[in-house]
Design a protein around this nucleic acid. Sequence first.
DNA 1: TTGTACGCGTTATCAC
DNA 2: GTGATAACGCGTACAA
Lengths: 333, 333
Amino acid sequence: MRVTIKDIARAAGVSHTTVSRALRGSEEIRPETRARIQAIAEAMGYRPNPVARALQGRRTQTLGVVVTRLSDPFHTEVVQGIEMVAQARGYGILLSLSHEDPEKERAIVELLAAKQVDGIIVAASRLGSRYLPMLEALRIPIVLINSHQTGPYIYSVATDNVHGGYLAAAYLIRLGHRAIAYIGSRRGGRSNQDRYRGYRQALREAGLSVRPEWIVKGDGRVEGGEAAMRRLLEADPRPTAVFCYNDLTAIGALKAALRAGLRVPGDLSIIGFDGLEEGTYVTPTLTTVAQPRRQLGRLAAEMLLEILEGRPSPKHILLQGTLIERESCGPPL
Amino acid sequence: MRVTIKDIARAAGVSHTTVSRALRGSEEIRPETRARIQAIAEAMGYRPNPVARALQGRRTQTLGVVVTRLSDPFHTEVVQGIEMVAQARGYGILLSLSHEDPEKERAIVELLAAKQVDGIIVAASRLGSRYLPMLEALRIPIVLINSHQTGPYIYSVATDNVHGGYLAAAYLIRLGHRAIAYIGSRRGGRSNQDRYRGYRQALREAGLSVRPEWIVKGDGRVEGGEAAMRRLLEADPRPTAVFCYNDLTAIGALKAALRAGLRVPGDLSIIGFDGLEEGTYVTPTLTTVAQPRRQLGRLAAEMLLEILEGRPSPKHILLQGTLIERESCGPPL
DNA sequence: TTGTACGCGTTATCAC
DNA sequence: GTGATAACGCGTACAA
């Protein structure tokens, strides 16, 4: 059987109330009895029961985390960031995967709320605004990572996709490219649009025009990038550079280009988005706009904890990506 | 405020006991009152409080999962497998990362136990046998993934590393190689030894000998594989094929080989272990011995649930890997 | 400074 | 069939 404060009380010859107070270091208790009780608790191997505490105090010291899937290395790093700060602050993490299914995501959030998590972090939410009432009814703070909503109990941390897209395109332009394609993502939603907008803006400022056949779509994964690149290779004139929605897409694009006998970056420059480790596995290594992924997770968790502890906290944070120059981009030949 | 069974009781004009029974579909209650109560509960939006249930019933419906790090794609897939079955069975997953630190791992396991998880799954445990007494004292079933311990409350699911190593080496031999190196892992522990043993066995059976300078060590990650391969390239005579501890190591080895101007598989064949997606990102794509990663997670979770529900369950399960022939291996020139 | 009594939401026990 | 009542382990007014 597990040791409870009652057991300790009995052993110490005091009431369980006194034990409760002593163990949490209450000031209004005589130092010597406190020390004595703590010693006894230690000796008996006492561990407070978090379930009982939660029932009493309505705090479970647990954060719900919802992610579409872990096989996407992007989320992986985000979750690590969250876990680090949670672990350091004594919070547990209840992890659920939504597999990009909005209905599942909704069910999970409700389930987490039912499980009494203190707060929820959702990465890459697929939930539309029509679910906002539900979220608000939960009366649990929710931090969204890389998606936008506003409302009571809704917070967010995101990277500036417009800025990132601009960064990528501007870099290619600086290298001398004038024919720059974009491989987007069917599933990218708002972030796809924003990166595209940043790209368009950079081209516009440089006085470059975009041919419709240079804008194609993948699925945010390697296969989609490969297929998209194959279509792109048929375009005439062919672009000399490609900005890809994300690194996985770019890796697929790179594979297709190499397979078609192109030299990268000689015949074609490729730039990705995310800053994944995976971009260093390929040859040539992938130039990319890195998102501060771990930072996203860390900030989301810190934000949530601040809210839970009643400290002042911003409602929305926007982070900037940074260019990582590796080998897949160069001047056009 | 949240709706409780007492609220329902008041609304229905019965005792909370009756409500509790009705909602759980007890037989010993008049069908009409049961239906009436259920209707009221539904109308009031009642959600049972899992915390209260846990306090009363000593079951939290939560599984603790410990993993070294998520940035290793191997674990990622394992966790997905676990999560799938847990979610389907209504269990939550409390995730913690140990970062390969045995002391941290121990602390986490204790913390999870304190949090009253019903069972624990540990992937790639770094805990030595001297912690067994602690684990047993917890009196919580623990399923180890890819590591071996025996004792009460200890279960395991693992892939057969000896067999896998044999598979890899035998394949290279079948292709005609006679000079086959091994890049191990400093951090691989037992699994590194076992894969090495399988490799040795295959060579022995084929009457091949191994030069000491053909056995080098990485760290289980890309950088380590690169460094190890650079050392290997200085060996004289140079091996015509390399078996790598895992895919990340192999990807590093591949990079180093390509960078040294070797053709793969022409000048050098490379085979990995794990079957990661990442192996298809590189050019040439990586031949490998695949571990059934998701299966490992699934089985571990199913095993744990069986144990928790008192159904008969094997104590240890050993799975076999399978060869995936891709492009990085061929006959020696 | 310490103890009594009660509540958190649920299930189990034992009456009626 | 249904209802009091206690119990799970802890925290907290309130009393002493």
